[in-house]
Design a protein around this nucleic acid. Structure first.
Lengths: 253, 253
DNA sequence: GCAGTGCACACTGCATGCAGTGTACAATGT
DNA sequence: ACATTGTACACTGCATGCAGTGTGCACTGC
């Protein structure tokens, strides 16, 4: 609740360059949404875990009202599932769900890369290369969390390069929902991923639409394949401790 | 509020086949969401129109709470825009927004048709042909509203034929958001649209992935082109009466 | 006239309270 | 032992109320 300096009144008539409080301070509902999303994406809440309103309300030190709104928003995004009169749970994704999302994401990343290549805006490209360089230095050695952030940064920038914000928003959502599983990569994987990023960027710079699309699409499928291979014997993605699995989890069948 | 027969208690021990009330009755929040979505899509609320919570609450005869939740959900779907402390408005889409959505939708419909052709499940295909036939009879002569419904039915079925529910959900959302503008078609247009549907279906039945994808994609672009042509001089899509335009509407510039 | 100030109204953001529903578990009868 | 009923608890759904914020308009002094 970062409303701390409301007490300091304007005393001198000169322009004080006070930051526009009214514009900047977000409603609690939005803050909760962000934090909750972050918490889910970072794995602090595991798939299938119940999200009890009162509990969250105490955790965030707010009333249940903003919590409820946040939960509806996240439900609309697909990160949370709300069953009427049964409450909210972190969304559980089946093997099939993941396959579906990867298929769609591969197509959309392909389209986006194609658009990026078509425009190859020098400004955005420059920024892309900067992230690429930063990643090249850290890639293999980076902590998982750092790597994820860097990866997100690259892909967000690529989306920007595509210049289709609707598309960008959609892939971001898909990436969020699948990101949970892409997390643990060994250093060999990380190197390969980053090399692929470089290849994509090269194609974008060259304005080679066809190649950029192909590479970006394949980039998603590759990561997906590894993921699906790892999980081929379990229908649910994350390993739930026995007895704590979401109801209906095929692992219990 | 269809809770009408709660009074009828089970009196005889035999199984009464009473429908499970607990499962079926939706929370007000969901009902409001649906009705509001329907109202926006059918044009009963025009783009940029303010959606005042208290007003809606009285309209639906509920409190502001479920209204707020519905608004957040629709905002997450992109049908409504919520500015903190300024309230909600029906989303206004710029020329660019529409271009972007059409581009994405064309790609996704293409992917979906490809998948549908790959599976060409006889059962779904049979249903497709039934809708197609019904449409062929009515197409040109149908009332606009009827035509839209029929069109939606066809596309939903096609999505089902694709077998990727995530994808289906995404194209449905895109179709919703663009549907507003596709509405007024003359009978020549309607005939052409329906002929294209038939072509797509044929390719799906033949299992010709490439053709199905191409046709479906082009189908979207065609409709989009007409739309964009019509609006090429106005940046905002729907004609707002002068003085009632959403703030920032380029038509006022 | 016209910038600046104060005020009133409209609306959103949020907390609180209560009724209704789902669920687990003990009590009861068979 | 087992099905059935009763009951207590946990939680969601929703209404209500109030504080805070945005906005338009009258008022003031110039």
């Amino acid at each position: 609740m970062d409303i701390d300096d409301l007490t300091t009144e304007e005393t001198s008539p000169e322009v004080r360059r006070a930051r526009p409080l009214g514009r900047t301070h977000s409603p609690l509902c939005d803050l909760v949404t962000e934090q909750l999303r972050e918490a889910i994406l970072s794995g602090r809440y595991t798939a299938g875990e119940r999200l009890v309103e009162e509990q969250l309300a105490q955790e965030f030190a707010v009333s249940r009202n903003p919590i409820r709104e946040a939960l509806r928003i996240l439900a609309a995004e697909g990160l949370v599932e709300v069953r009427p009169r049964h409450g909210a749970t972190v969304a559980v994704m089946s093997h099939q769900d993941i396959c579906e999302m990867i298929e769609v994401r591969a197509t959309l990343e392909g389209l986006n890369a194609r658009l990026a290549a078509r425009r190859h805006d020098p400004k955005v490209v420059a920024r892309l290369e900067r992230v690429l360089e930063k990643g090249r230095r850290l890639a293999a050695g980076a902590a998982p969390k750092e790597f994820i952030a860097l990866n997100a940064e690259f892909h967000n920038l690529l989306a920007e390069a595509g210049g289709n914000s609707t598309l960008g928003e959609m892939v971001r959502s898909l990436r969020d929902r699948t990101a949970l599983m892409f997390s643990p990569v060994d250093s060999v994987e990380a190197d390969r991923v980053w090399a692929e990023h470089a290849e994509i960027t090269k194609a974008v710079i060259a304005g080679d639409e066809e190649l950029a699309a192909l590479l970006a699409s394949r980039h998603v499928v590759r990561a997906g394949e590894r993921l699906l291979r790892e999980n081929e014997c379990s229908d649910c993605v994350r390993g739930f401790p026995k007895g704590k699995r979401p109801q209906g989890c095929p692992n219990d069948a």
